[in-house]
């Protein structure tokens, strides 16, 4: 197992030309089958979490291949403002640990002049 797709939560990003995971995956590993994302070849996945972090429905998580780790937990991530929230869960869903980490800062918090790129104060 590597990226786990929760079929109850994934809706295939309707209305989008590409699913969010399909758009960002650095290995070009996702495709859409009807209303759900699918992995082309799970063994080609790097476990980089790009798809997990970008999924708007938190339908994706990572579980390590059993070969290299007997821990059968799953790691989830969501972006919240200037932070990323990580949830380590047991398979049944119980949260074992949660981490809230600052991963970007607003231009006004910076010591330098705000860069030209941040004129509108946009944050993705």
């Amino acid at each position: 197992m590597t990226v786990h797709i929760d079929r109850k939560l994934c809706n295939g990003c309707p209305g989008k030309q590409e699913g969010c995971c399909e758009e960002v995956c650095p290995g070009d590993l996702f495709y859409r089958d009807g209303s759900s994302a699918c992995l082309r070849e799970p063994a080609d996945c790097w476990d980089c979490f790009a798809c997990v972090k970008v999924c708007p429905r938190a339908a994706l998580s990572v579980e390590l291949p059993f070969q290299i780790s007997e821990a059968r937990h799953r790691l989830y991530a969501r972006q919240r403002g200037e932070h990323i929230i990580w949830n380590l869960r047991e398979r049944q869903g119980t949260v074992i640990a949660q981490y809230r980490l600052r991963n970007r800062q607003k231009p006004e918090a910076q010591p330098q002049e705000p860069p030209a790129t941040d004129k509108k104060g946009n944050h993705d």
Binding site: L64, I68, S69, I84, W86, L88, E90, L101, N103
Partner: peptide, 23 residues
């Protein structure tokens, strides 16, 4: 130890799954 896991989450998240094998 928590700082260590957090540090890894910023760069190589999957090791967090391995470090926290048993709750």
């Amino acid at each position: 130890y928590r700082d260590l896991v957090e540090s890894y989450l910023n760069m190589s998240p999957s090791i967090a799954l391995d470090l926290m094998q048993d709750a």
